[in-house]
Measured scan of single mutants.
Amino acid sequence: VKVFRALYTFEPRTPDELYFEEGDIIYITDMSDTNWWKGTSKGRTGLIPSNYVAEQ
């Protein structure tokens, strides 16, 4: 598990995607895809765009 911080707010387009706000901490559990990672924030899990976060 790696810890990342959201650089921007992300509004999901599908139920599989995770909503998060700029500054949120996201725990990444799967980075197997280059563009979409699986992450958890505020008790919810979903896909996030990798270019919206920076490693802490």
Rank of each mutant, 00 (worst) to 15 (best):
R44D: 05
I26C: 02
N35W: 14
D33Y: 04
L18R: 00
W37F: 11
T9M: 06
E55C: 08
I48K: 01
Y19L: 05
S41W: 05
M31Y: 07
E21G: 05
T29H: 14
R13I: 08
D16A: 13
E17Y: 11
Y52L: 10
D33W: 04
E55G: 07
A6V: 03
V53D: 02
E22T: 11
G39E: 02
G23N: 08
E55N: 07
P15D: 13
L47M: 12
E55Y: 12
E55A: 13
Y19R: 13
N51D: 13
Y52H: 07
G39D: 01
R44H: 10
Y19A: 15
M31Q: 13
D24C: 04
D30R: 02
I25N: 03
S50T: 07
S50Q: 06
N51V: 09
T45L: 07
N51F: 10
D33F: 03
F20H: 00
S32P: 08
W37S: 00
P49Q: 05
D24F: 04
W37K: 02
T34R: 14
T14A: 11
L18F: 03
K42H: 12
I48M: 04
D30N: 07
P15V: 13
L7M: 10
Y27I: 12
K42N: 15
L18Y: 01
I48N: 00
P49G: 04
M31V: 07
Y52N: 02
W37H: 02
Y52T: 03
G39M: 02
Y27A: 06
Y52D: 03
E21L: 09
V3G: 05
M31I: 06
Y52I: 06
G39H: 01
W36M: 08
K42Y: 08
R5N: 05
S50M: 08
Y27N: 06
V53P: 02
F20E: 00
W36V: 05
N35A: 13
T14N: 14
Q56W: 15
P12R: 05
Y8P: 00
Y27C: 12
E21Y: 06
E55W: 10
L47P: 01
P15W: 07
E21M: 09
Q56S: 14
W37E: 00
D30C: 06
V3Q: 08
R13F: 07
N51R: 12
V3A: 11
K38M: 15
E11W: 15
G43K: 04
L7N: 04
A6P: 02
S32R: 11
T45Q: 11
R44Q: 11
P12N: 07
P49M: 06
N35E: 13
Y27P: 00
I48Q: 00
K2E: 05
D16K: 11
T9K: 12
N35Q: 14
E21T: 07
E22V: 14
L7Q: 04
G23M: 02
A54R: 12
T40M: 13
K2Q: 10
V1Q: 11
F20M: 10
E55S: 09
T40Y: 15
L18E: 02
I28N: 00
I26S: 00
T9F: 05
L47F: 12
M31P: 03
A6L: 03
E22D: 05
N51K: 11
P49R: 06
W36P: 00
E17K: 08
D30V: 04
R44M: 13
Y27T: 09
P49D: 05
S32T: 14
N51Q: 12
D24I: 04
T9W: 04
D33C: 06
T9L: 06
A54T: 14
T29F: 15
G43M: 04
D24M: 05
E22M: 13
I28H: 00
I28T: 00
V53Y: 03
L18P: 00
G23Q: 03
D24P: 01
D33R: 06
L47A: 05
N51C: 15
F4K: 01
P49C: 08
S41L: 15
L47K: 09
Y8K: 14
D24N: 03
E21P: 02
E11K: 13
A54C: 12
T9S: 12
G39K: 00
V1K: 10
P12H: 03
L47I: 10
G43C: 08
R13E: 09
S50C: 12
K2D: 03
G43F: 04
D30F: 05
Y19S: 13
T34C: 13
D33P: 04
S32A: 09
N35V: 14
V53R: 00
S41C: 15
P15L: 10
V53I: 09
T9H: 08
D30E: 11
V53F: 07
L7V: 08
T29K: 06
S50V: 09
D33K: 06
E11G: 04
Q56I: 15
S32V: 10
K42M: 10
R44K: 14
I48T: 02
R5G: 03
I25Y: 11
N51E: 11
V1A: 12
L7P: 02
F10Y: 15
D24G: 01
R5D: 03
M31A: 06
S41H: 12
E21S: 10
R13W: 05
T29P: 01
D24H: 02
Y52E: 02
G23D: 05
T9N: 11
L7K: 09
T34V: 14
E22Y: 09
N35S: 11
G39C: 01
V3L: 12
Y19W: 12
L47R: 08
L18W: 01
V3D: 03
I28F: 01
Y19T: 05
Q56D: 14
G46P: 01
E55D: 09
T14W: 13
Y27R: 05
S41P: 00
E17R: 05
E22H: 06
W37M: 03
A6K: 01
S41Y: 10
G46A: 02
W37Q: 00
K42E: 09
R5W: 10
S32E: 09
D16I: 08
K42Q: 13
P15Y: 07
V53W: 02
W36T: 05
K2L: 12
E21V: 10
Y8L: 10
E55L: 13
I48Y: 01
D24A: 07
T40C: 15
Q56M: 15
G23H: 05
F4Y: 14
S41V: 15
T29M: 10
L18A: 02
A6W: 02
Y19K: 10
G46W: 03
T40I: 13
F4Q: 00
V1R: 10
E11A: 11
W37L: 04
K42G: 14
T29C: 13
L18I: 07
L47V: 07
T34F: 10
N51L: 09
S32L: 09
D33A: 07
P15I: 12
M31F: 10
G46V: 01
S32F: 08
G43P: 01
F4S: 01
P12V: 05
Q56H: 15
E17Q: 15
T29D: 07
E11T: 14
E55P: 14
P15C: 09
I48C: 05
T34W: 09
F20I: 11
R13S: 13
W36R: 04
F10K: 05
R44Y: 07
P49L: 07
G46C: 04
W36N: 03
E21N: 08
E22N: 05
V3E: 09
M31L: 06
A54P: 01
R13Y: 06
A54Q: 14
L7G: 03
L18C: 02
Y19H: 09
V3I: 13
V53G: 03
D24K: 00
G46L: 02
G43A: 04
V53Q: 01
K38C: 15
I28S: 00
T40L: 08
R5Y: 15
G46D: 01
F4P: 00
Y8V: 07
E17F: 11
W37I: 02
K42I: 04
E22K: 15
R44A: 09
T14L: 10
T9I: 05
Y27E: 11
G43W: 04
G46F: 03
Q56L: 15
E22A: 15
V1C: 15
T9C: 06
R13V: 09
E22C: 07
E21H: 09
T9A: 09
A6E: 01
Y52G: 06
